[in-house]
Simulated assay, not measured.
Amino acid sequence: MTLSFVKPQDSGTTLEVSSNFRLRDILRTLPKEVFLKNRRKAWTSVVINVLLVCLGYASIAFSPWFLLPFAWIFTGTALTGFFVIGHDCGHRSFANRRWVNDLLGHAMMLPLIYPFHSWRLLHNHHHAHTNKMDEDNAWQPLKPEFYDSLNLLGQWVYQLVRGRFWWVGSIGHWALLHFNWNRFEGKKREQVRFSVLLVLGFAAIVFPTLIATTGIWGFVKFWLMPWMVYHFWMSTFTLVHHTYADIPFKPEAEWNEAMAQLAGSVHCDYPSWVEFLCHDINVHIPHHVSTAIPSYNLRLAHRSIKENWGEYVREYTFSWSLMKQITDECHLYDPEKCYESFGNHHAKEK
């Protein structure tokens, strides 16, 4: 049995692979050093990131009003770096000791009000079922029949987050999925409860203190606006990582793990300052091939994947035209064309 996939960046060509193609076939081609943890590199990234976030907050405090947007963008992007370090901790690729990963992961995600354990568990589910229809929990397109069953408000909200307001999509994901510990069982439920109560306790102390000392405007200036920039990057990274007009979501019977991680993941080049502040999270294909690869080894792993599996590799450059194409076309699930736009769907309904 073979599986067919559209060749990246060449919509007229398809690639066929055996259904027996496995991730281990890709892993065997990677150099061993990409899996090695480097304590100096890991902790240096933490120290630099903390200093940059402090610099960002100082710039917010002392900037005149007309420079505040630049200070917010810088600080929010640096806070995204906090999340990426927590992301490595969640995958246990930051440190060898689990308690170190858990402690640092919670510390990095606290300012973002993100419960570490619930994110870790849900994100691992995304990795286990990447681009598998009805299972993946990251930007899975709605099926047309489900979309039609929504009321007008539900359809309008979905149109917003799949359209020009994609940048608020991760806020809904954060709010709706990460604070309900009852969706987990056993030890996982206790871990999630701890993380949720920790961030709620943090917010209950920090937010009133911030408002009492700086006023409502201080809350908006020092926390809300950088947090919104962080969610802009979260939404953008996660949408672009697995979304393009010819990247399929497959039903379980047709899904192949290796092809989903290799050809269903996207490498996107961003401005170098964004990549630096966000610890190369944009180098995404090797991360999906193996979550054990630390962020500082992703570029080496990507070069190896390009050398050995280049025909499957998708590489794009972040731009308005890229986001416009994704938000204009990639709306509803279509088993044959991958995606159907809202316009085409509503035209058929008339």
Rank of each mutant, 00 (worst) to 15 (best):
V6C: 11
P8I: 14
Q9W: 00
Q9Y: 01
S11L: 11
T14D: 04
L15R: 04
E16R: 10
V17M: 03
S19I: 00
N20P: 04
R24D: 01
D25K: 08
D25Q: 10
D25P: 02
T29P: 06
L36V: 15
L36Q: 12
V46Y: 09
V47P: 03
L52W: 10
L52M: 10
V53Y: 00
L55C: 13
A71F: 13
T75Q: 09
T80W: 00
F82Y: 08
F83C: 02
V84K: 06
I85L: 07
D88H: 04
D88A: 05
C89G: 11
H91F: 07
F94S: 05
A95G: 06
N96H: 07
R97T: 00
R98G: 12
L103V: 08
L104S: 09
L104Q: 08
G105F: 08
G105Q: 08
G105E: 03
G105P: 03
A107Y: 15
Y114W: 06
H117S: 14
S118K: 06
L121P: 01
L122F: 07
L122H: 09
L122C: 09
H125P: 00
A128W: 14
A128V: 02
D136E: 06
N137F: 11
N137S: 09
A138V: 14
L142K: 13
L142E: 13
K143D: 05
P144Q: 05
F146Y: 08
Y147P: 01
L150E: 14
L150D: 13
L152N: 15
Q155F: 10
Q155T: 11
Y158Q: 10
G163Y: 02
F165C: 12
W167F: 08
G169F: 05
S170F: 15
S170Q: 14
I171W: 15
G172Y: 15
W174N: 03
A175G: 09
A175W: 02
N180H: 14
R183A: 11
E185M: 12
E185K: 15
K188G: 10
Q191T: 15
Q191L: 12
V192I: 10
V199L: 10
I205E: 00
V206P: 03
V206W: 14
F207R: 03
F207C: 03
P208Y: 11
P208M: 01
T209F: 12
W217A: 06
W217P: 05
V220K: 03
V220W: 00
F222C: 12
M225Y: 00
M228R: 07
F232T: 13
T238A: 10
A245Y: 02
F249K: 03
F249Y: 12
E252P: 06
E254G: 02
G264R: 07
V266F: 11
V274N: 09
E275W: 00
H284G: 05
H288W: 09
A292G: 01
P294V: 06
S295L: 03
S295Q: 07
L298Q: 10
I305E: 02
N308K: 15
W309P: 06
W309M: 07
G310Q: 05
Y312V: 01
S321H: 02
T327Q: 01
Y333V: 07
E336N: 12
K337S: 13
K337V: 15
C338L: 05
E340G: 12
A347S: 12
